[in-house]
Amino acid sequence: MSLERRSEIIEFLRDQVARRTRSTVEGINNDVDLTDLGLKSIDVVLISGEVEDRFGIDVDPIVMFEYRTIHAVADRLLEVIEAA
């Protein structure tokens, strides 16, 4: 269940990053710093809002800035979802 949910979060984040950076999902590396993927701070903020709506959790606005990569953010979000 956790693995499935983790994959779901990762796919969602990859899709969001691709939209914001106007790139393809295939070219996104899950272990690269979000800013190196071309995200500006405003993009990070807007994606946080999308995550909140999609998964029905309270997202702390600094999560994306603290965890920095798609994998790390997904792991943190999974903890939040499972604790909810």
């Binding site: 405003i42 909140e52 709506d53």
Partner: peptide, 25 residues
């Protein structure tokens, strides 16, 4: 706001539950 400038809550049974909030500019 903390993350955006609009939020909606549901108030009932003495409790406040946030339904959504806007993020960003």
């Amino acid at each position: 706001g903390d993350v955006g400038a609009a939020s909606q809550y549901r108030y009932g049974d003495g409790l406040l539950e946030r339904q959504w909030r806007s993020w960003g500019p």
